[in-house]
Design a protein around this nucleic acid. Structure first.
Lengths: 152, 152
DNA sequence: TTAGGTGCAAATTCTTTGCACCCTG
DNA sequence: CAGGGTGCAAAGAATTTGCACCTAA
């Protein structure tokens, strides 16, 4: 686990390539923000990243952090926890089920699978706390958005 | 799939029991909001539920919807998509991995499992769109929060 | 009756935008 | 040097809170 996380350099090179490939400039801010996110595994929010990055760039502004993070997200360099562009979303279905989330529009669909309901997680995870539920989250472009991409 | 969702009555009874059990009053607003959420599987946000519930109770206010939803969440009657009390959270780890989320404090931890990386989802899901990733999301009380619950 | 619940309005918190200046390519 | 990027300040969303009245138990 430690070993897998110790690849900041590799990630940074990937970041450079992605920026160049997309014609996005490689600014100091972007580099610092990316490194700050790549060095941790605690899934920080924008405010937290802002606080940390300011130690390197005291003049950095929070809105730049937001813009930069969503750019990275669009470039496929990072992802978000939970539904994309999240605000709180609720689910009254308390029976075991799983989710498909559209990365473009955020739409969610339930799906069912006996096999997935009984998934075993590693002991390592059981040691993180008292597990209440285990669900599968599939992400991708939903049919409607795939259609739209072709059209508009 | 249809069959499993067609249990609004059962859900509603569960809702009544949970309210009574917790000493929470069974108000008209709560009943309507719960039913509105239980009847759908589209994982609406608070605003959407508000719009729908207003057809039944035109004087309903948005803040009541919020209060009610979080109450239901605390009673274990509903859950949220993604991290609890969500604001956007970011992840620069693009290698296959999975998440443990604390339902109390929202903390996230990564975990790894070759076996879970290769999870197969039902064909039904592949028909929902172009799947980009499949991850496992385990939820529960993290060690720190479990400790706190005992103490304070 | 009465404690908890609701609606309203105002306050917060979180995120996005417009614009003038700056810097990478 | 040109066009995208940044910082600032202000706007806009989303969510929460204080308070007086209302209602289920």
């Amino acid at each position: 686990m430690k070993a897998r996380q110790a690849e900041p350099q590799r990630r940074f090179e990937r970041f450079e390539r992605a920026c160049r490939g997309a014609g996005a400039k490689l600014t100091h801010q972007r580099a610092v923000i990316f490194r700050e996110l790549a060095r941790t595994s605690d899934h920080p929010d924008a405010e937290t990243i802002y606080r940390r990055a300011r130690k390197k760039i005291p003049t950095l502004s929070l809105d730049t952090v937001y813009r930069t993070l969503w750019l990275f997200n669009d470039l496929g360099l990072i992802t978000t926890l939970g539904p994309p562009r999240a605000r709180a979303r609720f689910d009254a279905n308390t029976s075991p089920h799983h989710h498909f989330l559209c990365t473009r529009c955020g739409a969610a669909q339930d799906f069912y699978s006996r096999q997935l309901d009984d998934l075993e997680v590693p002991d390592e995870v059981k040691a993180m706390g008292d597990i209440e539920s285990v669900r599968v989250e599939a992400r991708g472009l939903c049919l409607r958005c795939r259609e739209r991409r072709k059209t508009g």
